[in-house]
Amino acid sequence: MKKFFTLVIVSLLSAMAVQAQTLKVTKTDGSVVTYNAKDISKIEFLPALSVSQPKVLHEFTGYLTVTSSLFTNKYYGDAAKIKVLQDGDKYIAQFSDAQWGSGSFDITLTRGQISGSGEMTIVNPRSGEASKYSAEMSGSMTNISIKIPSLMQGVTINWHYGEVPVALKVSGNYSGTTSLMVGTTMGPYSSATVSYTITANEDGTINVTAPQEHYKDIMMVGNLTIGSYVVKNLSYDESSHSFVRNYGKDDVKVYLKSEGGVMSLDKEYSFVDKSEITVKLEENGSLTIKNDYSLARMPMGLSATYTGTKSK
């Protein structure tokens, strides 16, 4: 091909020497440049100049916690990526996550601290449409905060580098079924479609919110409703890989109401000593809650086992 162009140019110059003695070049923008043939010694077709690409300085994968007006410190998985690039004298930070979208930020780096502004693109999970939001980035290379004031009345995405705390892994809303034993022989009785909520505390403990549960045809009691209550500060036990708390002295109370049985229940009861709850996240992602408890002025203890999966 190069030889072909050389021949063409030689022929062109020969023709020019005989005829017009000029070379007219029309550019793509419409402008025209004219040269005298005697001033041209050689014409070459050179490859286009390559554009330098930004240099990747750092690239990490971490986990997310998100806070908004609707929820606080909610865990959103451990696959979010942060990439820091250098483009000449500029620094750029790029964020990407399957659920919380992507963003690019012009940043400054000062002794390991990041600060800057940019834009996030997030897909609405309901409509499937992507929207762009102005955002601010700040923090260190291991803990980065992205604030989006115009999304959901203010959203803060917190990216963390490191191992995910167990309390965060287990946190969330779960849907499942509770099986209840009254004493050691009566039951099991079932309460279906039950939603438990697990929240993580900053000290690594968790809180468990038990929902209202309904059981039918319990001996002597009839239909029983157990009200909602919260057990706080369950500590993680390394040996059993579960969160445990004896909450009988925590002044936790629950409302019981029965209908159609010999025993009539319609008041609030206190949990007493040796009431113990155990929460364990199984390897398959399901949650098991074992709750053995006794109530003041009740003749028999109760044992509840809940099995659920995290709601999406």
Rank of each mutant, 00 (worst) to 15 (best):
L49F: 01
I92L: 15
Y76W: 09
F95E: 14
F60T: 15
I92R: 03
V51R: 07
A98G: 12
K74M: 08
E59D: 10
Y75V: 00
T65K: 10
S41R: 10
Q99T: 09
Y76L: 03
A98W: 02
Q53N: 08
P54I: 10
S68C: 05
F45P: 00
A37N: 09
D78S: 15
S96H: 05
S52G: 12
I92C: 02
K38L: 03
V84Q: 05
F71L: 04
S41I: 07
A79G: 03
Q53H: 05
S41K: 12
E44P: 07
K55G: 00
I92Y: 04
Q86L: 07
A98D: 15
K83C: 12
Y91G: 07
W100F: 13
S69P: 00
L64A: 11
E59I: 09
A37I: 04
K74R: 12
Y91H: 14
V66E: 02
K38F: 02
A93R: 05
G77N: 09
V51A: 14
K55D: 06
D89S: 15
F60H: 11
S69L: 10
I40D: 12
T61W: 07
G62N: 13
A93N: 05
A79Q: 12
I92S: 07
S69G: 10
A80M: 05
V56K: 14
T61G: 03
L85I: 07
S50I: 11
S50Y: 05
D87H: 08
T67Y: 08
E59R: 15
T72K: 15
I82S: 11
G88N: 11
G77R: 12
D89F: 08
S50N: 13
P54M: 09
N73V: 02
L70I: 04
D39Q: 11
Y63I: 00
Q94H: 00
K81P: 00
Y76H: 07
D97A: 04
D39E: 15
D97I: 01
G77T: 04
Y91P: 06
F45H: 02
L57K: 06
F95M: 09
I82R: 13
S69V: 14
I43T: 08
T72E: 14
D87P: 03
P47K: 14
